[in-house]
Design a protein around this nucleic acid. Structure first.
Length: 197
DNA sequence: TAGGTGATCTTG
DNA sequence: AAGATCACCTAT
């Protein structure tokens, strides 16, 4: 079952980030189907969190999609190379999002290998936000895409129990001062498909 | 551990 | 109009 809109539209971005672990990201792009278990996420809160692109209500062309009602994709270009996939959450006007940082391939591995230019499957295939997007075929073209469409969605699955989730600080947000210390990164304990331990 | 890469945002 | 910055990845 595709995750329903009310899953995304809650006001608890950290809860949503935790609950997205274990669920299955599915893309049907370029005539290829790929599925992968979400293993690592980070929460970003537009109102309180200096690490969020939309901090303090900042509204620009880039951040605009974060203000949409939850259940759409926010994809942006990082370091001129990487296309990072986020899930927009909360109600319209509240710019929260969850960055999907790593996943474990389930289906469409040949397609992922081809897209990544790799010969053999190892954790580098889909561990790390830029790698994952590339493997799954997600690009800037998916910015604003509805996550209940036929091309991109997330299948509901049980989330891991709390004692199988590691909570720690987010990656690459040193510029955010105190907020860099928030434990808003979540990953599945004992899973090798993690960007960095 | 450093360099590539380009959109975005801020400053002047 | 220009320059700094950036939620990263790869290879030495």
């Amino acid at each position: 079952m595709k995750l329903p809109l009310d899953f995304y539209q809650r006001d608890e971005v950290c809860t949503i980030a935790r609950e997205l672990l274990g669920k299955i990201l599915v893309t049907h792009l370029e005539e290829e189907t790929c599925k992968a278990i979400i293993t690592e996420t980070e929460a970003y809160n537009g109102r309180t969190d200096k690490a969020c692109h939309a901090f303090g209500g900042l509204r620009t062309k880039r951040t605009e999609v974060m203000y949409a009602a939850g259940g759409v994709a926010y994809v942006y270009l990082c370091y001129g190379i990487h296309q990072l996939f986020n899930v927009v959450t909360n109600k319209e006007g509240f710019a929260d999002a969850v960055l999907i940082r790593a996943c474990e391939p389930l289906e469409g591995v040949q397609t992922m290998l081809r897209r990544r230019g790799l010969q053999t499957m190892n954790k580098r295939l889909t561990s790390g936000p830029g790698s994952l997007s590339k493997a799954m075929g997600i690009s800037l073209a998916q910015n604003g895409a509805n996550l209940r469409s036929e091309s991109t969605w997330i299948e509901d699955r049980p989330s891991p129990p709390k004692d199988e989730i590691v909570e720690t600080t987010r990656i690459g947000v040193d510029y955010a001062g105190d907020d860099a210390l928030l434990p808003w990164r979540y990953y599945m304990k004992n899973n090798i498909w993690i960007s960095k331990n």
